[in-house]
Simulated assay, not measured.
Amino acid sequence: MSERTPVRGVDVDPDTRCAHYHTDRDVVAFKFACCETYYPCFRCHEEVADHEAVPWPRARFDESSVLCGVCRSEFGVPEYLEGDYRCPSCDAAFNPGCEAHADLYFETDD
C-alpha cells in the first residue's frame, strides 16, 4: 500500500473524486496500461493525458491497478470486480456505475 500514490486528473480531491465524478462513492482510481498512471475516470485521462487510453490488459489483472481513494490500498482487477463495489481493505463503498465503463478501464473479451 502506498500512502500517496499519485492520481492525475481534473480537480482531483484527496479521496480521488474528480470534476467528472464526485459523489460520496466516487473514491476509486484506475491505472491505465498506456502510461502506468492512476486516473479517477476515463474522462480525466482524455483531458490530461497526451495519448490514447489503453485499458489494463487481462494478462496483468493480478497486478495492482485499482486504488481506493479512502485508504489508498492498491489491488488487482479480480479483487475489484469480485468486491461488490467495496474496497477489499477498508470496505469503503465504490460507485456501482463504474461498471458501465469497465471496458474503458479493463481489457474485455469482445
Rank of each mutant, 00 (worst) to 15 (best):
E47K: 00
H20V: 10
E107V: 07
L104S: 06
P14V: 13
Y80H: 05
Y38N: 07
E79S: 13
R60Q: 10
P57S: 10
Y85C: 13
C44R: 07
C98P: 00
D110Q: 07
C41R: 03
R43Q: 14
S65V: 02
C35K: 10
R60M: 04
H45Y: 13
P40R: 01
H101I: 08
Y85W: 15
R17W: 05
E47F: 00
F42G: 05
P55L: 08
A33M: 07
D62G: 00
D109V: 04
K31S: 06
D110E: 15
T16C: 15
T5A: 12
D103G: 03
E79N: 08
C44K: 06
R60C: 03
D50W: 01
V70H: 04
E46K: 05
V12P: 03
G69F: 09
R8G: 00
C98A: 01
Y105V: 06
W56M: 05
V66R: 01
C35Y: 12
V70I: 14
R86N: 06
D26H: 13
E46R: 10
C35E: 15
E107R: 07
V27S: 08
V27K: 06
D13E: 11
G97Y: 06
E99V: 13
C90K: 09
H51Q: 12
V48P: 03
R17T: 08
D84H: 14
P6H: 10
A93Q: 15
S89F: 12
P40N: 04
N95A: 03
R8T: 10
A29I: 11
E47G: 00
H51I: 09
P78C: 11
L81A: 09
H45I: 10
D24S: 13
L67K: 02
C35F: 12
R4V: 06
F61L: 01
P55C: 07
A92D: 13
C35I: 12
E82N: 14
F32M: 15
A19S: 11
E107N: 09
E36G: 09
A100L: 14
S65G: 09
A53P: 00
F75N: 03
E36Y: 06
R58Q: 11
L104E: 14
A59K: 07
V54W: 02
Y80P: 02
P88E: 13
E3D: 12
Y105T: 06
E3R: 02
T108K: 04
A92P: 08
A19C: 03
A59C: 01
P14E: 15
D15I: 12
Y38T: 09
V12C: 04
A92I: 12
T16M: 03
E52C: 00
C34S: 15
H20D: 12
C18D: 15
E36L: 10
V12I: 09
G83A: 13
E74V: 02
D24P: 00
C90A: 11
V77A: 14
D24I: 10
K31E: 09
C35W: 11
G76S: 05
D91F: 11
A33E: 15
L81F: 01
R60H: 09
E99C: 03
G97M: 04
D84E: 15
C68W: 10
H101C: 07
W56R: 02
S73D: 14
R43D: 15
D103C: 00
T16R: 05
A53E: 09
R60K: 11
V54K: 07
F61A: 02
P40Y: 04
F30I: 06
C71L: 12
R60L: 08
Y39P: 08
A49P: 00
C87S: 11
T23N: 07
